[in-house]
Design a protein around this nucleic acid. Sequence first.
DNA 1: GTAATAAGTTAGACTACTCTAACAAATTTA
DNA 2: TAAATTTGTTAGAGTAGTCTAACTTATTAC
Lengths: 218, 218
Amino acid sequence: MASTTEENYLKALFNLSNSKGEVNLSELAHSLQVSLPTANSMVKSLQKSGWLKYEKYKPLILTPEGEKEAALIIRKHRLTEMFLVKKMGFGWEEVHEIAEQVEHIHAPKFFQKMDEMMGYPTIDPHGSPIPDIQGRIPQVNFTPLSSCKPDQLVQLAALTNSSTEFLEFLNSRKLALGTELKILSREAYDSSVVVSYENRPHETLSEKVAERLLVRII
Amino acid sequence: MASTTEENYLKALFNLSNSKGEVNLSELAHSLQVSLPTANSMVKSLQKSGWLKYEKYKPLILTPEGEKEAALIIRKHRLTEMFLVKKMGFGWEEVHEIAEQVEHIHAPKFFQKMDEMMGYPTIDPHGSPIPDIQGRIPQVNFTPLSSCKPDQLVQLAALTNSSTEFLEFLNSRKLALGTELKILSREAYDSSVVVSYENRPHETLSEKVAERLLVRII
DNA sequence: GTAATAAGTTAGACTACTCTAACAAATTTA
DNA sequence: TAAATTTGTTAGAGTAGTCTAACTTATTAC
Ligand SMILES: [Mn+2]
Ligand SMILES: [Mn+2]
Ligand SMILES: [Mn+2]
Ligand SMILES: [Mn+2]
């Protein structure tokens, strides 16, 4: 059974390879805030346990077992986040830190009960898909708001970044998953996007914000 | 901040000293399933951190800080158990193992929300008191069923043992907290107690069971 | 009160995880 | 292609938590 530390490494490897393709040691070390030699020695030990394919100087690749293990930890993380929001009244900006701890609990029935109580949700509070019990992830395909065209009508579906600061920024603009946005224009100068939604006829979103908002076109 | 291991030692020390008075190293080692030298070295380190008073060959005594820390972990444990039963539909025999893990989560608001959702319960599913947020424990005084007299009417209020096996035994006899029992007789021969309750006019409980059942006289 | 037993301690070792310092390989830049 | 930079590796050490073996102190039984 993977230790909490190993679980965090597997999760980081999984997330990095899903967002950047090939994963190297520097990225892994940076993402876990450990030194390069620390990551190096852990990577060797993950290989020994069969979670990871590793050759000197080569990119890091999870084995199928490693991928499944990682996906199941991410499943627990996302179920927890959704449970905290839907059943315990937390804000979407408060749940990540708690889920980071709860994801390491070994108690299948605990997560099964959460799942059941919520009616088997497929996404977490930030729009990320919840892997199923086999570790399979429903693939969804959303468009960054930054690449939408004027006059399109879209609905906020997910985020590419879920930091507390970004979530608090979205709260301050009353932007939530499901919010319907009309794209009014895009500034050629700074690539900011002007949208209208609900009671807000003219809200300007910077490029940085717009590329972190994933929308479904409606 | 205490590590998970340290937290488990503090909790064990607290529980042992509350049930047996003085605590020695053997009891501690046995209760945590570690060797004597392991317990010995941990005890020295707990002393260094100020949680414990320790002198060679002397009984182990928690400092006030150690007591409070332990009580707050027990608070998280018992709140969790109650939450699992009251809000997530677990049986009282299933929750201890899960709480043993959840008690180590550092997220005050998580436990505060549980507390709030349950309406600030004062006991856990096994009748044990939940320490308050200052680590104070409401002292309750119940009588073991084994020392009740015939014809008394009593109500099951708590247990001195909450092992899965005992809880499953109680389930099989439909005994739950709150059940009202009439004491019919006590066998002089084996100290068993004959009671009636609900649809059961003659149920015999062994001495072993009777001394683990704490009742309130009504 | 001595001998036997139980409880506690010390020494030394091992695994897991982490670090810094020194160096080597690979990649990028000029 | 050679130099500069980035990335990766090895060596060596430290802390936390665990163990067994050997020994000492305290307690219990005669
Ligand atoms: Mn998260
Ligand atoms: Mn984590
Ligand atoms: Mn318990
Ligand atoms: Mn525990």
